[in-house]
Design a protein around this nucleic acid. Sequence first.
RNA 1: GGCCCCAUGGUCUAGUGGUCAGGACACCGCUCUUUCAAGGCGGUAACGGGGGUUCGACUCCCCCUGGGGCCA
Length: 487
Amino acid sequence: MSGKVRVRFAPSPTGHLHVGGARTALFNWLFARNKGGTFILRIEDTDRERSTEESYRGIVDALRWLGLDWDEGPEVGGAWGPYFQSERRDGYRERAEMLTAGGKAYPCFCTAEELAERRQAMKSLGADPRYDRRCRDLEPGIVEELLSRGKPHVIRLKTSDEGVIEFTDIVHGKIAVPAEQIDDFIIVKSDGFPTYNFAAAVDDSRMEITHIIRGDDHLSNTPRQLLIYEALGARPPAFAHVPLIMGPDKARLSKRHGSTSIQQMRDEGYLPEAMVNYLALLGWSYDDSAQLFSMEELIEKFSLDRVSDKPAVFDYKKLRWMNGEYMKKRSVEDRVRLVMPHLEAAGLVKDPADGRMRDFVKRVVEVVGERLKMPQDIVELSDFFFRDEVEYDEKAAGKFLKRHYVGPAFRVLEDRLQTLHAYNEIGIEELMRGLAAEMGLKAGELIHPVRVALTGRAQSPGIFEVMALLGKEKVIERLARARRAYA
RNA sequence: GGCCCCAUGGUCUAGUGGUCAGGACACCGCUCUUUCAAGGCGGUAACGGGGGUUCGACUCCCCCUGGGGCCA
């Protein structure tokens, strides 16, 4: 392959950025970065009905959030622009006229009804319902007349029934389709707009795209696009069709399987680096063991020949695990920032948190430590730090607070904490262990009831850390309350 | 329906004619420990079926089955 690599990601702004689309974008981007090539963003907004500014914004934001920047495209420009198909219509019209003038395409005046009728007829004869090329050899005079009368028409590409259309896909290998399989398909619709295949092929050739990396769902479009390239007299790019992403039921991943848009995943607390890493591993692998890759490593190691050719099921559990791994790598400050909106939303922290509160949250985050897999986990993990009164989990309270020794033990503990000079983790631990020993209890037998009294739950971060952070006052108050309520 | 693609544990995958079929997530034990999480150790679990080719097939070929895609 000679020349500089040029790849593109070409979404339609008709919805959110789907995880499948995001992975396609990622593979293109990684390939470009690995090869020192150019990554182009092209917006395929020829469907004016469904394209929206909002979708466009959402897609662009999502790509940036993932860290996928483009060298040419909207907002950054480039020498091959414009990068919105809606602004490239003249180009499609010119190419279509060129092909028609050159005898490689022709206007077809058959109406949708006529076509449907003939298709039905062919079907009932047991034949494949394909266009019968009726308008292909119309007398030039008749064509002129119909055109001048303004009769609605489409433009079709002339195709041959002879031979096979063959190409080598980088991930699938040799692919061959019998030429007869493809009829004289439409390249320009009756409203003057290009069809998807035509617009894409024209743009890819004019933008000098060298490698088309896209979803498997476009595999069967490829022969048609190859035919367009040929008619245009352009050299076709290399193709790499990556397998689709499926839901657990092996059907194409869709909304009913869960969150499928990058925007949604972001709102749900997934970290971009986890998302990127997970997506990279869906359909690509480096070796027999590596799982965690930084963006730099991905760029360095990515290659198309290690892309799988089989569909992959999206596994939210593994993504969650990976998110936890990346959460651990984030600084405490980062985690505070991530966690804050959730504390606010839960009403545990009032909205613009002041400096004191931020400091406190920071210490909570430190105490919670690696238990945080998702930012929102903070609520369940630490609500007791923020509430005035704990809500007891009935099972936990029943199991630990009703023990006969709890009342007396708490009473002594309250007194000793009151006079404890070194009210810190170490001092508290010493005190607690000492007290347990004195009373002939195992440390756990004292600790568990204390945990329930302070947090309401049977599980929590380390109890000495919790006590230290909660503060002497609150700890004593909660111990007393639990004692009165249960013991 | 036609054409195209695909088939290793529940999931993501390594494997490119001779491996005890490896790793990761999930799951289950054990361990550490004040609980949970994390960590450490260990475990259950796979080559869809049938034909070939070959001394030998997960690996190559064909058929079937199953899944997916595109077009209709």
